[in-house]
Design a protein around this nucleic acid. Sequence first.
DNA 1: CCGCGAAACCTAAATGCTTTAGGTTTAGCC
DNA 2: GGCTAAACCTAAAGCATTTAGGTTTCGCGG
Lengths: 192, 192
Amino acid sequence: MARANLTSAVVIAAAADLADRDGFDTLTLSALARGFGVQTASLYSHVRDRSTLIERIHQLALAELADRIALAIGGRSGRDALAALADAHRDYARRFPGRWTALQRPATEATVRSEPAARVAGLTLAMLRGYPLPESELVHATRLLAATVNGFLALEANGSIAHREPAVETSWQRALDVLDSAFRDWPTEGRS
Amino acid sequence: MARANLTSAVVIAAAADLADRDGFDTLTLSALARGFGVQTASLYSHVRDRSTLIERIHQLALAELADRIALAIGGRSGRDALAALADAHRDYARRFPGRWTALQRPATEATVRSEPAARVAGLTLAMLRGYPLPESELVHATRLLAATVNGFLALEANGSIAHREPAVETSWQRALDVLDSAFRDWPTEGRS
DNA sequence: CCGCGAAACCTAAATGCTTTAGGTTTAGCC
DNA sequence: GGCTAAACCTAAAGCATTTAGGTTTCGCGG
């Protein structure tokens, strides 16, 4: 019987693939082991337990997402950059639903302080700096962006707005328009 | 041994309370049965299985939320009505985290077509009609609103932005400002 | 008051997942 | 060629879900 020759990274990658293929909540160590032709208990040499496995998928997804965002933003700025970033999120969520679900889970302190997390945050900030936002408002803008994009993707993911007229694409464009306008003309304390 | 005298409604309400108190993923039929001083298997007379139990919590939460939204909106209009609706969501999510988590799960077709769902949708539409939005854009506005509010609450719930400076309250107000502005001056196809 | 039917509750058991503990085998390296 | 670390195993405990089928309680009509 040939060995599978597992490593931590291989196990995590396979787990992410499995979550993408069969859905996040059917991601089970048993199924994972089955895929490797290995006993379930053997996986515990490579992963502490199920919850840390999910945390590692989270980190993996964060790194992959950061790469895609960086690639997408490229030399763009303004609305183009905003759309590129948001679409990168959306593409990722659609192509890798399991990984994306893992991303929605509460991040560990370690994950929050990880390099990929900082990279995503940095790219987002860089994009936002293309707008005339006061430095003190950047956090609020970031939060709004994250809330809107992730909220929209969550709605799509749970089927609330899929396969319904009018097309979701239009709604998505409207959302991006609204964000673009908001960043361009940001409401501060004493607006009229 | 006095009987617990369970009914479907009692079981569901207790399950919702348990999810609020101990967290959604520790909501288990065993724990639920333990709370009633009853065997786990006995619950299956009142609830088909765990996933339908969650679906019922979803429906319960929808009905409760509809009541609160209706109460909050009251005679308000414009930004006041918007804030009332959004805050009703937020209050609910904070006070009943377990119920709110159930709400985020994919809704069944039956749930989508249920009366409470229609009530929430109706109240939202009524609020939006206080803005000068063309009828054809109401769906997009609804989707943006739902995405932003739920997205924000999700960020709060998973600890991404809690206990961080600057205060989340300001971010929330900014988000409401942005939505208010957007509904007031909605971007259509050929905007400049 | 009696009995009867429905509903509430029970025990028992199968299945499957998670996790720990400890033992065996393989591969690489000095 | 043997030693060591890592890869893999078996065994078993613990818990959750779910089905099947049996018993008790309660209310209601006769």
